[in-house]
Amino acid sequence: MEKIKLILCDIDNTLVPKHQDLSERAVQAIHQLKKSEILFGLASGRSISQLHRLETSWNIRCDVIIGLNGSELYDGLDDFSEQLYFMEPAWIKACFEIMAPFDCNPTLRRDGISYVRNYDKNVAASSAYIKNDHQVHIVKDDAEFWQGPAFKVGFRVKAEDMPAIEKRAAKFPSQAFKGFKTENTMFEFCNAEASKGSMLKRFCSRHDIDLQQVCCFGDMTNDISMLQAAGIGVCMLNGSEDAKAAADFISEKAADEDGWADYVEKHILNR
């Protein structure tokens, strides 16, 4: 195994159970990585501003943050951010047409405002978790969703509908945007060029880091690109079947058993 120089980690159901705080064990593992001169970063569907809030509340420091599923990048080594990939209004409208047959609650963030069709328990929980860093607007007409560009659009759906949603989305291929499952009840669309894997490559190229010396952790379809790009891709025990198939290894424990910290301690810090 190559000497690891960078660990990049998804958050929900990977680093922590969804909407949970980072455990003290995981905090100490991150601090120990830093002492071992191993860089650490987060890759998430959340925005960089939201991830900075979590970083502060968890008392950790990230060397790299990939936000919005690969649409934006924060380079902590050079201390700058860049936003690269947007969804055009017409693309957003097309996503709604794809999702029309399904009972869902769309959500989209633009200019610090989260647009939702319904303010339900999932929206409330997400807002509380990221310390209410944005205003929530309940739309009166779905056309408000595509009144301007945005980084991504998500649809909260029923878990039993997900196979049919993935099948329907595959029938509408686009060179402009792509759709994928980010949770068992969340399907998202973003610019076709955006991915966690492409942003990982961008960061590593900038700092001359060999991808073979990168270890990535994830649990869901939107993590596959970085699991495949890294020299070592680890899917959580609780991960989706497609993410497990793309990974090199599967953690011995699930996210709700501190599976990330357990794997890092056993296979990276103490090897």
Rank of each mutant, 00 (worst) to 15 (best):
K266I: 04
N132I: 07
F203S: 04
H267I: 06
S174R: 02
R202K: 15
K253W: 12
C190T: 15
S195P: 11
K266M: 08
L211P: 01
K178N: 08
A90I: 11
A159S: 10
M87D: 06
A94Y: 05
I138P: 01
Q28Y: 05
S71Q: 10
E2P: 12
I209R: 03
I130C: 08
V27H: 07
H52M: 14
H267Y: 14
G148H: 07
M162F: 00
G233L: 04
P101A: 14
D78T: 12
E188A: 10
S57N: 12
C204W: 00
V116R: 00
I268Q: 03
E241W: 04
H52W: 09
H137G: 09
Q213T: 07
A243E: 00
W260Q: 03
A192W: 00
G45S: 09
D111R: 13
F151P: 01
C95L: 07
C204A: 12
A94F: 06
I224D: 00
V136N: 02
H19C: 10
K201M: 13
Y115R: 05
D63P: 05
Q228W: 04
L108A: 05
S36V: 03
S127N: 15
P163T: 05
A254E: 10
K244Y: 08
A143C: 10
L51D: 08
F249I: 07
K152G: 08
L42H: 00
S44Q: 11
R117F: 10
K167M: 14
D223S: 09
V123E: 08
K178M: 13
L269E: 11
Y263H: 10
K158G: 11
D210W: 02
A176W: 11
E166S: 05
S126G: 12
E188Q: 06
L200C: 03
I4A: 06
